[in-house]
Computed example of a mutant assay.
Amino acid sequence: MIRFASLGSGSAGNALLVESGATCLMLDCGFGLRETVARLHRLERQPADLAGILVTHEHGDHLGGVFRLARKYALPLWMTHGTWAASREAEAGLDLRLIDSHRSLTIGELEVLPFPVPHDAREPVQYVFSDTLRRLGVLTDIGEVTPHVRDVLSGCDGLVLECNHDAGMLARSTYPASLKRRIAGRYGHLENSVAAGLLRQIDCSRLQHIVAAHLSERNNQPGLAVGAIAQALGCAESWVGVATPDSGFAWRVLQ
């Protein structure tokens, strides 16, 4: 059985918890130390419960709180060499474990498979978590869906999927043209219809949960993201979850 919950998801900060048995991992931490502890408490967890922290890439909304949390509570850190190099952090006081972006690793009761994604970072990855029976795929901060991404995510039992922006809202926004190009480009973020298109291209027959994540507060609306996903899956909109910036989402279970 896999359990997963979000501390918050958006441009202000991201953190996800994934559990199996006695193993609880945090994926990214873009919140300050006090805020992270408070959000863990909301999910009935504390830093001492964590087996460690996995990192996707070096952007502040994913990495900003990682090093302080890891040092204070002596937590192992897993990230790619490129992410580590781009972080410009001193290694002192860290239990750092560099990973291969194509090789799975076992942490406690979870098998963790990193996979590379196109994004404007040094060596970004996303992850699939498995307890040998169930698979949870996490895909945020990706500009373009690749064949490898489709292969890795096909057949998952749960998905946390980026629905960052709506193309029309982004085009009409007051963002500078350069920022609009970055967000919508092949190293930016997934648009609602592109996320929905991914779901049409992979095996979703085992899906128990899907959560739209990393929604832009300025260039998207939850209803637009949920509608796109529900149409792609042919399901009721009420079945599609949304990770919010303030409260993420509560525990969900893959059985």
Rank of each mutant, 00 (worst) to 15 (best):
R3D: 11
F4W: 02
F4K: 02
A5F: 06
L7G: 01
S9R: 04
G10A: 08
G10E: 05
A12T: 12
N14K: 06
L16E: 00
L17V: 02
G21D: 06
A22Q: 14
G32Q: 09
G32S: 14
R34F: 14
R45I: 07
H57Y: 08
H59L: 12
R71A: 01
L75V: 05
L75C: 04
M79N: 03
T80F: 02
G82C: 11
A90F: 09
A92Q: 15
S104L: 08
S104Q: 11
L113R: 11
P118T: 08
P118M: 10
H119Q: 11
A121M: 05
V125L: 02
S130A: 05
R134L: 03
G137W: 00
D141Q: 06
G143C: 11
H148Y: 15
H148M: 13
H148K: 12
V152S: 03
S154P: 07
G155T: 08
C156W: 02
L159G: 00
V160G: 03
H165S: 11
D166E: 12
A171R: 14
P176E: 04
R181G: 09
R182V: 14
I183H: 03
A195I: 00
R200W: 10
I202E: 04
D203T: 12
I210Q: 01
A213C: 05
A213P: 00
H214L: 10
R218S: 15
R218N: 13
P222C: 08
L224A: 14
A225P: 10
A230Y: 07
A236T: 09
E237R: 15
S238H: 12
W239T: 13
T244H: 07
A250S: 15
V253T: 13
